[in-house]
Design a protein around this nucleic acid. Structure first.
Lengths: 204, 204
DNA sequence: TTACATACCGAACGCTCGTTACGTACCCCC
DNA sequence: GGGGGTACGTAACGAGCGTTCGGTATGTAA
């Protein structure tokens, strides 16, 4: 293979695909330079030309995970407000094998992320963005009267993310007990109770 | 040190404490025989007398985690129904440093558990038990009229667990943005919307 | 043709891991 | 007061890890 100067990005893309396969099969715990090199059929030295250190490769893997997440096929957003929110949250749940693989990688990254302050901050930022992505739909829902005017949208966004990710974890561990239609029904019930919230809630 | 035959349990208890300190500080990813031995100031050979293999030690660590979880200080259960459910769920949230450490260990164990079929089944069983522990309070709530008669209690239990654990994860990654009172307020809002669910929910 | 930079391989380094073998101190029992 | 089994410490093994390094092609430039 000639050292064509423009191939660097293509090579990094090859590495990305190998990294993703490793992650899907063995999680972040199985992400080693040798495993990636073997997956590509190249040497570890070659890897170091593109990612000077393991940490750089891990960072790239996390970036890749985010990229795969944001580039995943999503349902059309049917409308504004609650219906759109439902579509967004449905796109998070592990309803297909691909979704399950991606979520499995996410969960497996938490062990690393909780142990490293930099990665922890990255993950915190990712959650901030996730909640921010939900907020516009909550605003629309409020505008449409689907939510009471005094609803705390930031808290609602965090609550929705909490419910969805908590459901993801349970579904990953017990796929039999949480088939796609059960997950969907749970989400619909959750949204129904959220949206039927009476102004001036009681508990406190 | 004499080989007093009754000291075996005491020694295992010493090991347990060291294991727990390692888990709290570095998670399951940092649980190595050498780390535990160094924490106790003994040799790795000594460890192997009490846990013949690493897997045995990991199993013990998981058992220890469950033990710490079930033996944690809990608030009094004020009453039946929704109030009791609130207390149960509050006891899960990382409101104190100890709670945070325990939850951090839980999350860090998921990486291992998702990679090993046996451990995954264990974790699935743990979730089954967690939902089963919540169900009686939901039944009481329904009996007290705090829930509509046709509510699906199994699904509600799973939903409550999902919300709480999803909140745990977000709080672990971003403690600043999820101080104890914010977590409590979110839980109260969540419960309020759950309990105000109107019979014959809409979405679906 | 020579000189040089790039791309990559293969092998090795130093380290840590789980695990094992061996030596020794100790207590119990005779 | 000597066996013998238990309870360790010490040291090492082999494997796997991230990383480094020397060598070898292949391209471009003079």
């Amino acid at each position: 293979m000639p050292p064509a100067p423009g191939d660097r990005d293509a090579r990094r893309e090859d590495v990305s695909q190998a990294v993703w396969r490793i992650l899907a099969d063995h999680g972040f715990g199985g992400l080693t330079l040798r495993a990636v090199a073997a997956e590509m059929g190249v040497s570890t030295g070659m890897l170091m030309h593109y990612f000077p250190t393991k940490r750089a490769l891990v960072g790239h893997a996390l970036h890749l995970l985010e990229q795969h997440t944001s580039a995943r096929p999503r349902r059309p957003r049917p409308a504004e407000g609650a219906a759109a929110l439902r579509a967004v949250l449905l796109d998070v749940l592990p309803l297909t094998p691909d979704d399950a693989a991606r979520n499995r990688v996410w969960v497996s990254s938490w062990d690393l992320a909780l142990a490293d302050d930099g990665l922890r901050a990255d993950q915190a930022g990712r959650y901030v963005r996730m909640r921010a992505a939900i907020r516009p739909h909550l605003e629309a829902a409020r505008r449409l009267g689907e939510l009471p005017p005094e609803a705390d949208l930031d808290r609602l966004a965090a609550t929705a993310v909490a419910f969805v990710h908590g459901l993801v974890v349970q579904a990953l561990f017990d796929a039999e007990r949480f088939p796609p239609d059960t997950q969907t029904a749970m989400l619909d019930d959750f949204l129904a109770s959220l949206l039927s919230e009476t102004p001036g809630g009681s508990a406190g």
